[in-house]
Simulated scan of single mutants.
Amino acid sequence: MQTLYALLRLFREYIVFTLLTGLSLFLIANNNSAPVQVLRSFSILTFASFQSGSNQIANLFTSAQDAQTLRDVNVALMEEVMQLRQLRQENLELRRKIGFRERVSYPLVPAEIIGKNLSLGQNMITIDAGSDDSVGVNMPVINEHGLVGKIIATTAGYAIAQLALHRDFRATAKVKRSRIDGIIAWDEGDMLILKNIDKTADIIPGDTIVTSEYSNIYPSEIMIGVIRSIGPGGGGYFDRILVEPRVNFASLERVFVMRYRSSSQRSHLEETMFPDEDER
């Protein structure tokens, strides 16, 4: 009992304040006089305004959180779309290459390009396939679009290929439509030139150029490119038959090495007899 009395004495101010506040609210709620009604309306409006402001602040934070969540979801969806597009492109490329391999009659060794030297006419690539993969010197290098070049050096696991855009590149070629034979070589930039063609030959811009059956390094009918322009030359030949390669060398990433071996005896004989027009 003494403890209860001590607590009442200790908190008597709070107890009195609570009782008086409750009594005041009771009297205000049950009093219909004009001043009390004004006070009651003011209290209600004040409380409503405070509650509305609190709700707006809460909604502001909620909207900011929702916006951030939507941004995160949008970024994730964009990344997923990009991955799906990349997978689709790889799938289409794989289908093209599978179909291409089925059309080629010689065994092919697939390879990734791991190094490029594309400067001053010394255009070469390094691939991740070598003698352990049955890759040898002078084997043709192609992709699904056409002729890329040939192998000029190998190790057990790697090989270097000379591109058709190399200044020493030569290949016997022909116009597919009219069967006119010539020599294809690098001209400058990303263009090739078809040489040793008589002025009376049946060739026109748009003609397709392929490797010929007279080549000792490249099988016949490999796509090389398309004639873009024909310029007049001296003597009995055209000197500026420009050919645009079908292969896009700037974006080249993967190639195939054709396991097609040239005849060393024929190569030696032709290099001896025709040193200026050999397939180098």
Rank of each mutant, 00 (worst) to 15 (best):
L7S: 04
R9T: 05
V16D: 12
L25V: 13
F26D: 11
L27I: 14
N30I: 10
N31E: 15
L39K: 02
S41D: 15
S41G: 14
S43M: 03
I44Y: 08
A48M: 10
S49L: 12
Q56Y: 09
N59F: 09
L60I: 11
F61T: 06
T62Q: 13
L70E: 15
D72S: 11
V73Y: 12
L77N: 08
M78C: 03
E80W: 09
V81M: 06
Q83R: 15
Q86T: 04
R88I: 08
Q89L: 12
E90F: 09
R96Q: 12
G99R: 14
G99C: 14
F100M: 12
Y106N: 04
L120H: 07
N123Q: 08
G130Q: 01
G130Y: 01
G130C: 03
D132T: 03
D133M: 06
V135C: 03
G136E: 12
N138F: 11
V148D: 02
I151K: 00
A156K: 09
A156Y: 05
A159M: 01
I160F: 00
L163P: 01
A164T: 05
T172P: 07
A173K: 00
K174Q: 09
K176H: 15
R179V: 14
R179Y: 14
R179C: 15
D181W: 08
G182A: 05
M191N: 12
L192P: 01
L194T: 01
K199H: 03
T200N: 11
I203W: 00
I203R: 00
I203F: 05
P205E: 04
P205R: 00
P205F: 02
I209E: 00
I209K: 03
T211H: 01
S212N: 11
V226F: 00
S229M: 06
S229H: 12
P232A: 10
G233Q: 05
L242R: 09
V243P: 02
N248A: 10
F256H: 08
Y260A: 07
S262I: 04
E270N: 09
E271C: 05
E271L: 05
E271M: 05
E271W: 04
P275F: 08
E277W: 05
E277R: 07
